[in-house]
Design a binder for these strands. Structure first.
Lengths: 339, 339
DNA sequence: AGCATTATCGAAACCGATTTCGATTTTTCA
DNA sequence: TGAAAAATCGAAATCGGTTTCGATAATGCT
């Protein structure tokens, strides 16, 4: 038999309600009995059942984590997983644990809202670089607090965090420009990816802003943000002939895929083609050439997401968004080798 | 007000118990009423409250995930996260969701057993390459089904999966040997790491098995399995002078760190020093030189862990262990460049 | 038809907590 | 000292399910 509140009450010679009050910091219990009960709790190592508590209070201290979209986003995604890691830590100090919904469990694959109710999550975080789906929209519009990571949630109890994608692109273009590059290409994810689209838009705007011309032949797209997509996209560019001098890839993995294709063709980076990636994942440091990229502050994204969600849960916020500053990280793939 | 079983019962004109029976495949309910109720459930999208169900049955359909140990194992660990990803998928098709315990939430930091009871998890998976701690031991010895990943759990309701670490080492040594290397070094993690120790032991045995001599000067250790540790360990070797001709690193990241140090010293890989890593993480393909390594079948480790745990939960297994075969992946860091 | 089975259903106890509200005890203060 | 106020505590309802067991209805059989 599991240790429960009733047993604690009996051991302490008080009622169940008194024990409960002590555990929830009610004021109408004397210091003396409080100490006595606390001691027993300490000795026995009693922890209240989360299900019983959740049933009674409708609060579970659980945050749902949803990997949304069809872009293969899961634990193996090096960018999101770092944001998630930071988010988890921060949520932990705020007193919450994380629950991951299996997409496989429900054939419907999508009714996130029901599942949130099912587990009585206090809030949830939705991770996705994709355009809005219906199932997410339903959640967004519900009364369950939600935070999107790279996903623009607009509901009353929603918010989101993302990097300033326009600034990401303009930093890239500026760097290219200052190094003398004028023929700029782009490798993005699918048109389904909101983030990729934003970066592309910003890229085009920035190119025009610097008085250069955009050549659409040099804009290609993969199926997601992963390496093989970058490889395939670059292949496409190579087959068409007439390469740009510099390429901005919407993720580091896309950039690495592009580099692999380039190398296979006997091309040198950055001498023949300069490459800038995006995200600044760990692997950037180990590749050859080391990848020049735009760093997204993943730790900060995670921390902000956690705090926003916490405030939303506690009605101390009306939602909204946080946009974090990106930073250029100069390494070796773009002609200007620092240190 | 939340949609609950009572409301469904009223809508269908049956009792609460009947609805419950239908949802749990009891046989004592007629096909006719079953269909009627099912239809209402379908229409309303009713999902039973997990907390209520858990409270009543003591089964939560939740699997606890524990990152144990002090070796900085979390979502950013490229090997474990892939195992976890596969585990999560498989657990999903078996009908379970995952809950991640925050280490930050409880200052005690360790009472995993209580937390498992607190959430009524049906089982848990413990991820760690470290020696056994007390808090884990308690869980291991409890009646909660547990699976260790790279952690040898011995309890009656426990099991574990890991790669055949001796074979990993012997494959490395064999490869070195056949390529003519005779002066072999090793970079491991701390002495706290059971896995690292196993690989080291196996390495030594294999070296002796091939009639070579082991030189302890060439055996160094970092603080964990990450890149900076490999860098630091290699620095140590470099300062001592008199390098081995080939080095086996107990993880790919350690290998990459070592390579970075080597490059800084103007040494070439594999011409001056050959390196073999371990795990076969994604990054191996993007580095320069591409890393020759021993592949651990992460997907299979995850699937096996899931099935073992499922069997343990359903009393269809007495525990035990699964050891999966490693495979040599020849790339560029060890003198024999395939394709 | 009449009785024994079997099929179908519901009442009620229970799981382990929270919370309201009333009862009792203690304290305060004139 | 005695009445009013405040402090302390517990009984019981509640949350949303599951499960046992008895009641009733339907069916089988001679």
């Amino acid at each position: 038999m599991q240790l429960n509140i009733k047993m604690i009450a009996e051991m302490a010679g008080v009622s169940v309600s008194t024990v409960s009050k002590i555990m929830n910091n009610y004021s109408d219990v004397s210091e003396k009995t409080k100490q006595r009960v606390l001691e027993i709790i300490e000795q026995t190592g009693y922890l209240p059942s989360n299900s019983a508590k959740t049933l009674a209070t409708k609060k579970s201290s659980l945050i749902g984590v949803i990997f949304a979209g069809e872009l293969n986003v899961d634990f193996t995604h090096p960018f999101f997983v770092e944001v998630l890691n930071s988010f988890k830590k921060q949520m932990g100090v705020l007193g919450y644990d994380l629950i991951f919904f299996s997409n496989e469990k429900f054939i419907s694959g999508g009714d996130y809202f029901s599942r949130c109710l099912h587990f009585h999550v206090d809030g949830c975080v939705i991770i996705s670089g994709q355009k809005m789906e219906n199932a997410i929209q339903e959640l967004d519009m519900s009364s369950i607090p939600c935070i999107g990571v790279d996903l623009e949630l607009k509901g009353k109890k929603s918010g989101y965090v993302m990097s300033d994608n326009f600034k990401i692109s303009s930093k890239v273009v500026e760097h290219f420009y200052l190094l003398g590059y004028r023929e700029l290409g782009f490798i993005g994810s699918t048109a389904d990816s909101n983030i990729s689209n934003k970066r592309e838009e910003g890229y085009i705007k920035a190119i025009e802003g610097f008085g250069m011309t955009v050549n659409e032949k040099w804009f290609v797209h993969g199926d997601d943000f992963f390496e093989p997509s970058g490889y395939a996209a670059m292949k496409q560019l190579l087959q068409a002939g007439n390469l740009p001098k510099a390429i901005f890839a919407a993720s580091d993995l896309l950039a690495l895929g592009a580099i692999r294709a380039l190398k296979e063709h006997g091309l040198r980076i950055p001498e023949d083609v300069a490459i800038i990636g995006c995200d600044d994942i760990e692997a950037c440091k180990y590749t050859s050439p080391k990848l020049t990229t735009i760093r997204q502050n993943k730790e900060r994204l995670g921390v902000l997401a956690a705090h926003m969600l916490f405030d939303l849960i506690n009605n101390q916020s009306e939602g909204g968004s946080f946009v974090v500053e990106p930073a250029l990280v100069v390494r070796e793939s773009c002609g200007s080798q620092n240190r």
